[in-house]
């Protein structure tokens, strides 16, 4: 009899533990490599506040975020751009803002470029810094690889096609872009303002150019005056409910502004 009691007890124990495991909830986020580091931090704090919840973040680009949210591979997609027209069936929630800034080497005497000059440089019509008020020297155009949201935003703003751009260097992520420009006094590139501001503040020899007279700074992205900025969005297939809604509300709340700033993004105005 005793043995049977023991057996029943252990089976019960097992059932209870598996029940609590089943109660463990998991949120899967995939998408933009720009948002991913922020999402990891947001997830950690969310996990701490909600025991039993796990937040799993994988990066792979905004396009993947959107397609994973649609296919259901992810609960929430991350996209560092506004939804395109053919994606309007999805729901998007802005959690922070990011600006894209044109960067030059610190030693480059050029102080500002007009939109037309940037376009002419990127399309190969201007190939020497002399023609835009700089020293005599060839311009090295740094472009992003196809499919990156930074590239999409840049070409969309300047109304260019990627095939119009005559680049000398094509890069993957922001860091590679900053290192390329820092190592070449004749280079011009474009990267996330938050990252560039952090790097130049830490002694990397790069500088951000103003646009249409507006300084490229986190401050001006926040107040909306900087023209080349983008929203960082969470994307879902349906109107969020339950845990998904709880997480999205959390990421848009004032309590995570410090996390957003720590990643050199700009929190939503509250």
């Amino acid at each position: 009899m005793f043995k049977i009691n023991q057996l029943i007890a252990s089976v019960l124990m097992l059932a209870i533990t598996s029940l609590t495991y089943a109660a463990d909830q998991k949120l899967v986020l995939t998408g933009s490599s720009t948002i991913a580091p922020l999402a990891v931090e947001l997830g950690k704090r969310f996990e701490k506040l909600n025991p039993g919840v796990r937040v799993d973040v994988q990066s792979g680009g905004s396009s993947r975020g959107v397609s994973d949210a649609r296919s259901g591979l992810a609960d929430i997609g991350m996209a560092s751009r506004a939804l395109k027209d053919e994606e309007k069936d999805l729901k998007s929630f802005t959690i922070a803002l990011d600006g894209i800034g044109v960067i030059l080497h610190k030693d480059n005497p050029v102080k500002t470029l007009t939109d037309q000059q940037v376009i002419d440089i990127y399309t190969g019509k201007i190939t020497n810094w002399r023609d835009v008020g700089g020293k005599d020297g060839r311009i090295t155009v740094v472009n992003k690889a196809e499919g990156r949201s930074t590239l999409e935003l840049f070409t969309h703003y300047y109304k260019l096609k990627n095939s119009d751009i005559k680049a000398q260097v094509v890069i993957g992520d922001n860091q590679q872009g900053i290192k390329t420009v820092a190592g070449n006094p004749g280079a011009i590139g474009y990267v996330s303002i938050g990252t560039a501001e952090f790097e130049s503040g830490n002694g990397t020899p790069i500088k951000l150019l103003p646009m249409e007279g507006v300084a490229a700074s986190v401050e001006n992205v926040r107040n909306g005056s900087f023209p080349l900025s983008r929203p960082l969005n969470l994307v879902t297939k349906y109107v969020p409910m339950g845990l998904v809604k709880q997480f999205i509300d959390f990421t848009r709340s004032k309590e995570v502004a410090d996390l957003v700033e720590a990643q050199y993004f700009v929190p939503l105005p509250h």
Binding site: G137, R138, T140, V169, K179, T180, G183, N184, G186
Partner: peptide, 17 residues
């Protein structure tokens, strides 16, 4: 290569990469 070799080549013949 990115931080030493490429800037070195760029000094003679940009872009170096």
């Amino acid at each position: 290569g990115l931080t030493v070799l490429v800037p070195f080549i760029a000094a003679f013949e940009p872009p170096g990469a």
